[in-house]
Design a protein around this nucleic acid. Sequence first.
DNA 1: CGGTATCCTCGGCGATACTG
DNA 2: CAGTATCGCCGAGGATACCG
Lengths: 126, 126
Amino acid sequence: MGTKQFSGSPEDADLRRADSLAREIFSDVANKWALLIIEALGERTLRFSELRNEIEGISHKMLTQNLRMLERNGLVERTVHPVVPPRVDYALTEPGQALRVTIDGLCDWTHRYLGHIETSRHRFDA
Amino acid sequence: MGTKQFSGSPEDADLRRADSLAREIFSDVANKWALLIIEALGERTLRFSELRNEIEGISHKMLTQNLRMLERNGLVERTVHPVVPPRVDYALTEPGQALRVTIDGLCDWTHRYLGHIETSRHRFDA
DNA sequence: CGGTATCCTCGGCGATACTG
DNA sequence: CAGTATCGCCGAGGATACCG
């Protein structure tokens, strides 16, 4: 990922394109808020304000911004209900669900190694 | 993750502590450069300059900074060879390897859905 | 309620230079 | 070669206010 060396040959052009696209997507997704949003959604469908409550410390702006990004990449589906007051629901698409599975792995990892990490930190800080 | 609601009861104190710690670790790790470094290391052991070459676009500063962070959390091991010029090797620890596996999943996901995402973007941008 | 726009600040990050 | 320190800027992101 972002590692390969390409020759100057023209037939590598689309490989290089795919590679930079992969890197771009990776940068979109490998971000704290995006991951927390996906994790929060899980299998449920939540409204904007519910997401805001679920994810501690996220600002209005960051939430909308990341939701747009995720929608653009086809990871979340946004459905607007034409009622007043407005109601907007968010849910993961199939690609989003697939991603969520790996993020679950990340969360599991975090909790499994909580202890290791905490002691490692104390050792380091000395 | 960063989701739970705690009562004010004192016996929840350590739960809340563990939770905020988990969130902290998550924020450390759920970051583009950290993930790319771990992915670059894989099963190999690389020197500083090799890492710098492997990871396209990372600056000297970001690399050292993230390496320190990963070392502090016990995800990478740093070994200094007392030679001149200096030689410093980095390798993943066992927790680091465990994390790498899930990151591999993330990379696989990226490549599997490259197409989906690209078309989704085009639809969205219209 | 959800979204967009505007403003303003604070710190992330690159560039550069210097040590061992 | 690897690491630390300093400076300076640019932009991420919070706060606020206003629409539909």
